[in-house]
Amino acid sequence: MDAPSIDKVPTTQADSVVDWLTNGTRDERFIDNIFAGMCIRLQQAGIPVKRGTLHVLIHHPQWLGARFMWADGMHDAKIERVDYDVRERSEFIGSPANELQDGATEVRENLERDPALGRKHALYDEMRAMGLTDYVAWPLYHTLGKRHLVTFATSRPGGFDDSHIAALKKLLPVLALVSEIRIKNRLARTLLETYVGSHAGELILAGATRRGSGTTVRAAIMICDLRDFTRISDNWPRDDVIDLLNDYFDAMSEPIVRHGGEILKFIGDGLLAIFPLNDPLACANLLRAVTEARQGMAALNDRNNGTGRAPLNYGIGVHVGDVMYGNIGSSTRLDFTVIGPAVNMASRLETLTKQLGRPVLLSRAFADFVRDEFDLERVGEHPVRGFSEPIELFAYHG
């Protein structure tokens, strides 16, 4: 099963698929769709591919990478995320991916021969059980030395012949170019979603990158801040402080995202989020997120209490109003955020939570949206720094 050099590739098998990859995928955004379409076209070109996988490394806060798997009869590829600790597990150790990561330029396995004579890994046993006869894996080279992985398998008696292998090899440089473009697009989107949020990321990708560009949005605004963080950061080991902040932000952030909010920024131990009022349930969803966040913080404090740590206290200020949503900053460093009196009010209410002894304070303007559905405590009118008239405030106990 030694592969011939690429200059022996027959023009009748590979070229139609190469041409489609080069010219027929320009309007397709997603690499999984391209990969499935490529495998189907390989079959149509007479190359007996029964199964194919594409493994890519990505920069994501939760996932090391992703695997796209196509099998005979499938129209779409199946997508599986890959955990960061996969390299410590048996599914990776001794696998083709392991061999290629260690420097191999090809992994080829004859699945028809006696298993005792071949490579030992559960993947090969699984493929034999599927009736596959031959398997090949190659690194897929992207720029700056980045290596991904593509594999093909067949059920043809005798496996792939030399012309099939040559045709598949001919695809690799074009597949590398096509996949790198899509992966970088996905990477850009993922990084923007991670650092500025999904909605702001979409706007930036759509071209909203000019300083001063933006729009006015009517939204419910939520600002949350951790109490006594300076004392904690001064007295706790650095790694413990980072773990604490991550746990705190998980408890606060996940409900916000789940209920349709947009986290615009983390500011030290604080966060700023908005729920745009183009969703008629935005204000109710914000309070549902607050309820779940408070439950998450209670659970976190219970866990911390078991390790002798003091409970974490926090304040949440909520207001509603028009905000300017867009690019603000210097000529070379921009921030996509919201500004305006409504944001200032939410910030002042968060500060008042400590003075009034209520963890969650709502303005009257916000409370009017939700008073029929949620039980609120009126705490009277209070002066708010920067505003000329006292503001009627409500507490929410979740």
Rank of each mutant, 00 (worst) to 15 (best):
L191N: 00
S179Y: 01
E126L: 04
A129V: 14
A122S: 11
H148P: 07
K146M: 12
P173N: 05
T190N: 06
L172F: 02
L144E: 13
L171D: 01
P173K: 02
T216K: 09
I183Y: 00
P173W: 14
A116D: 08
L132A: 01
L123N: 03
S179R: 02
V150S: 00
R210L: 06
V136F: 00
L187R: 10
A137E: 09
A200S: 14
A206F: 05
M127V: 03
V150E: 01
A137L: 04
A137Y: 01
K120V: 11
T215C: 05
G158S: 02
Y135K: 01
A129G: 03
A122L: 09
W138C: 03
R186M: 11
W138S: 06
P157D: 03
T151S: 09
H142E: 07
H199F: 09
L175R: 04
L191V: 15
L191T: 08
A188L: 13
S179T: 14
T216P: 01
G197H: 13
V217S: 04
G197C: 08
S198P: 02
S213Q: 15
E193S: 14
L172N: 01
L187N: 06
R218W: 12
D125A: 07
A208N: 09
D125L: 12
N185I: 08
L144W: 10
H199K: 06
G118M: 10
D162I: 15
A220M: 11
R147G: 01
Y124L: 08
I165F: 03
L187T: 15
R218V: 15
M127A: 00
L168C: 08
G118A: 08
I204A: 02
K146L: 11
L205R: 14
L177M: 12
V196H: 04
I165P: 00
G212C: 06
V150T: 07
R182D: 01
H142F: 15
S198A: 10
L177V: 12
G212R: 07
K170V: 07
R147I: 11
L203W: 01
P173T: 13
R156M: 14
S198W: 03
T215G: 05
I183N: 00
A129K: 14
A219N: 04
E126Y: 10
Y195E: 04
E202S: 09
G212A: 05
H121R: 02
D161N: 13
G158A: 06
G212K: 15
G207A: 10
M127N: 00
G197M: 11
P139E: 03
L172V: 12
D125K: 12
V136T: 07
A219R: 06
I183K: 00
N185D: 14
T194M: 10
A176Y: 03
L191W: 03
A129S: 07
G197T: 10
L177W: 01
A200Q: 05
L175V: 15
L203N: 02
V217R: 14
A116Y: 02
P139F: 11
E180H: 06
A200T: 10
